[in-house]
Write a protein that binds this DNA or RNA. Structure first.
Lengths: 351, 351
DNA sequence: CTGAAAGCGCTTACAG
DNA sequence: CTGAAAGCGCTTACAG
């Protein structure tokens, strides 16, 4: 007796396999595709032979004939940013549950421009972009997808007019933060790391400006940023350096709004080290609501991105788009963030 | 003039495309495949038409003829564990640099058993497993891959005899930890969260036992675990609860070895909250060397998994395996971890 | 159920 | 360079 693992080579075609089973190619094909009208014994024979030989039909032959590929291309800004990876993870789960497999590519700046071409060549049924991309490159790719009629959605990229988009309302996030801090009596705000030429930053600055204006405050008057004083290497260290600078200043802001949780955690630690109490003397708010928020004392107030909801909206949209004609209108799905209030923010105490 | 985005539909075959360009299918095909012996003007015409029409040749036709797919299947335990995602990220970067695209699937417990079958049907050129899997299922899949002659490597799964494996030497990690703490004078060790029916835990316990024995210490005598007292929901909270229990005990260990950084951070915070000084009264060592280690005070001593090296070894092995006949012998690549010493561990001070 | 045939879109070897 | 042809492995419609 020859054990299966000692077989010299795998069977490579339905023709060869049909000969092995002793049936016609048509019959085998019908069993493989769960078609009706076959004797139970025939089905059993084929299944048995599949297990014996490990025969795996070549998917490319069926795909060439026009069978849907069940592939979805995912183009990511990177695989290292926590919130991006979480979105990928949630999306992948949705796709897997519906029988789709994810093709993953990272759009590195120096990387191939033909990334979407590869996806199209493999006849993916949809493409998801997650993150911030060069607007010109993205627009070009979207145009290509439109021509091919391939459904697509852009997650987390706020300034794309040509494509359906699911994006966090960062303006609303800042409104929530300002509302919270303003309600606690704060009127002067330090910005920690909210600078630079990124859309996610621009959106937040605009949101801050609007939120302050709604309360009769002027952005230039009541916010201060010392970001230019330091080079940002690690977010945490950057937060520490900024806090050290602010702690030294007279008339420093009473509330600090950070670009992310790491920066907020760094600032909080440095303030505390210098004897500035949180939240009695300064309040701090982070962004992303990562687990670090619960690992520092006091725990960090932070904006939750609602990753799961974002992924669900994107997944449902894209799965519904498959097989339908592309609509001309670009749809914007806006995700409302949620401020999670914890111990790092508290009422203003007059000094 | 019709703008490209208003074209009614994309060209779907080289035949149609060749008609559009006014060349023969053979000529077009030769341009697309960068074959020599073509006039520069012909190449230019085809390239121009590609840009105009957005024509993307159907990859499945070439793949059906036997062209290598440039696909690599990656089967992950999950997409939420930080170290697993980092390995995926590093691998993806290696693959992309060599022109390979990653097909990603997560092997959820209730998920499809046909996961590897799908990869094989798409004729992936190699398969990488990352994480811990059900040994029986993994063995079955490896056997299938052997029969198909598909190169494969298993990362981070320590007990697989049938396949090439790249795995962290967790025994060596524990030797490094014990060596460090023993050198500081510690003789009684508390274990934080190092329990349960996982290979990564078993390996560490064996490593601890051996490391202690080498120093004339007996595991049962000089270690203590209170894991059974609590249900593990969040690692951080689990660490806190354990520290609270240990702090109350008389004759408590002077050094604590945690299953991961979150547990270590929780324990450190709780010890400090209860007035137990770190490292003066207790030393703490984490595992994974995550960024949290640098965000707490004192900073956490921790074991670095050498993720980048792991990924590089796995990637180089698998890329070298592609196109070669499978070797019968299973190769074990062992990765040596590196203990990063920080402020949370210090010399034993007699009380 | 079988068996012969067509066709998906490509690449390639060949004669001109 | 062109043009006609074969073949990759599958599915499917058809006659028996």
């Amino acid at each position: 007796m020859t054990s299966p693992s000692q077989r010299p080579r795998a069977i490579r075609s339905t023709a060869e396999f049909a000969r092995y089973v002793g049936l016609s190619r048509s019959a085998v094909s019908r069993v493989l595709n769960d078609q009706p009208g076959l004797r139970a014994s025939t089905i059993a024979r084929v299944r048995q032979a599949m297990a014996e030989t490990g025969f795996t039909p070549n998917a490319h032959a069926a795909l060439l004939r026009g069978k849907p590929s069940s592939l979805i291309g995912v183009c990511l800004e990177n695989l290292t940013t926590h919130s991006l990876v979480r979105k990928l993870s949630e999306l992948q789960e949705f796709f897997a549950a519906r029988g789709y497999t994810a093709l993953v590519e990272v759009d590195r700046p120096g990387g191939s421009r033909q990334l979407v071409q590869q996806f199209l060549a493999l006849r993916v049924q949809a493409i998801v972009f997650i993150g911030q991309f060069d607007p010109a490159v993205l627009t070009e790719r979207i145009a290509l997808l439109r021509r091919h009629g391939t459904p697509h959605v852009v997650v987390d990229h706020s300034s794309c007019r040509d494509a359906p988009t699911v994006t966090l309302d960062r303006g609303a996030a800042m409104e929530q933060v300002v509302s919270h801090l303003h309600g606690l009596g704060h009127r002067r705000f330090g910005l920690l790391g909210i600078s630079g030429d990124f859309q996610t930053v621009t959106d937040r600055l605009e949101g801050l400006r609007a939120a302050l204006a709604r309360r009769g405050l002027e952005f230039a008057q009541c916010t201060r940023s010392l970001d230019a004083h330091h080079v940002r290497q690690s977010h945490f260290e950057f937060g520490r350096l900024l806090a050290a600078d602010f702690a030294r200043q007279s008339g420093r802001p009473s509330a600090f709004i950070a670009v992310n949780d790491e920066t907020a955690a760094g600032a909080q630690l440095e303030f505390q080290r210098l004897g500035v109490r949180v939240p009695e003397e300064v309040s701090i708010v982070g962004f992303d609501n990562r687990d670090i928020c619960q690992m520092v004392r006091p725990q960090l107030t932070s904006v939750d991105q609602q990753v799961e909801r974002t992924a669900r909206v994107a997944a449902e949209f894209i799965l519904a788009s498959i097989g339908r004609p592309l609509t001309r209108a670009s749809l914007l799905h806006t995700i409302e963030p949620q401020l999670i209030v914890r111990g790092s923010s508290g009422p203003l105490i007059r000094r």
